[in-house]
Amino acid sequence: MSEIFEEIKEAVIDGDEDLAGELAQKVLDENINPVEAVQQGFIKGIEEIGNSWKAGEAFLPDVMMAADAMKAGLAVLEPSIAELGGGDDDTGKIVLGTVEGDIHDIGKNIVGALLTAAGFKVYDIGIDQKAENFLAKAEEVGAQIIATSALLTTTMNAQKELIEYLEEKNLRSKYKVLVGGGPTSQTWADEIKADGWAETADEAVELCKKLIS
């Protein structure tokens, strides 16, 4: 069984979407535990490429392709994981999006893929989203976390506006609000009274686990 996990890991590292999807299908066909396939295959692969990237040995396109490969595999496995009861309501629901005025979503998409792999139910509302759209989605799905991305100093203020909007609606305490993106920092998160900030996608996953537990 560990052989297929190793193959999955390699497919993710190579950014081979087709192979990742095929291997995920093989997991289902051979009645291998899909949760284990995610944890010991897909996540291991993305972790390895992530570490290479941090060390300057891999480039952003490599990470993007690895995330796409992981997503392709997760899409195949998700229904059976949900059936098993893993990755369902008890793990947590997260509304994720890029703030109003900002159209950047590479980091957000990688965060979304890692959160999904970690078992969270992620509702990605996309780019250029107003505060009210974050809240409407969170209310609709019963999310615990609202995670917002901003890549520009010209748009990061919309993260602050989102928090103010929640305060206005008397719903601030209902949600944990996370901020991320290139120009953001822990100082920024503290200043706007966000519940957390993460520099990297894997730190974002750890943060969500901590906030929901």
């Binding site: 950014g15 396109p61 993007m64 392709m65 796409d68 159209i103 950047h104 979503d105 590479i106 998409n109 780019i127």
Partner: peptide, 22 residues
Amino acid sequence: EYEQKYGTKKARQLIENLYGRY
């Protein structure tokens, strides 16, 4: 650069992910 490194299909996909929103 990506086309040379990863081939046309992957390069198109990457560039769409990187700049498709502009």
